[in-house]
């Protein structure tokens, strides 16, 4: 009897497709806008503004936006104030969730969930490709 051979690409696509479904099944993603509390999004000072990426970190026109700011080291305290950026955009890399106490646990959960999924996928792909090679 002729043995039916499923191409390896198909076998890898199956878990990848399942992951896609799993991901899209989740209501939220990494964007802050999806989970930010309404009062945060509604508050005027967190609306998108003209402050650019500002990698020189000079105190410029954003200064007046300075809301309730955060614990800072002495050497940066003054210059940092007013560095909140538009929610959902991460102009400063991960900075946005370090200065929003409610955002940190959110991103931790996401990272933990994704890490787990990718680890499970890695194990699945390792064993599937190994089984096929032995055949």
């Amino acid at each position: 009897m002729k043995r039916v051979c499923i191409p390896i690409s198909t076998l890898i696509l199956i878990p990848v497709t399942l992951t896609l479904l799993l991901f899209t099944g989740c209501q939220t993603d990494y964007d802050i806008t999806d989970v930010a509390p309404a009062d945060f999004l509604d508050s005027e000072e967190h609306a998108p503004h003209d402050c650019d990426i500002d990698h020189d970190h000079s105190d410029g026109e954003c200064e007046e936006e300075s809301p309730e700011e955060l614990p800072l080291d002495d050497h940066v305290e003054d210059s940092h104030a007013g560095h909140d950026h538009a929610p959902g955009t991460r102009n400063h890399g991960t900075q946005w969730f370090f200065n929003q106490p409610w955002a940190a646990p959110f991103i931790w959960k996401k990272l933990f969930r994704d890490g787990g999924i990718f680890l499970a996928l890695a194990v699945a792909v390792f064993f599937i490709s190994g089984r096929r090679r032995k055949k």
Partner: peptide
Amino acid sequence: KDPIAHGF
């Protein structure tokens, strides 16, 4: 890098 530069 930003949080560190800003002393968070």
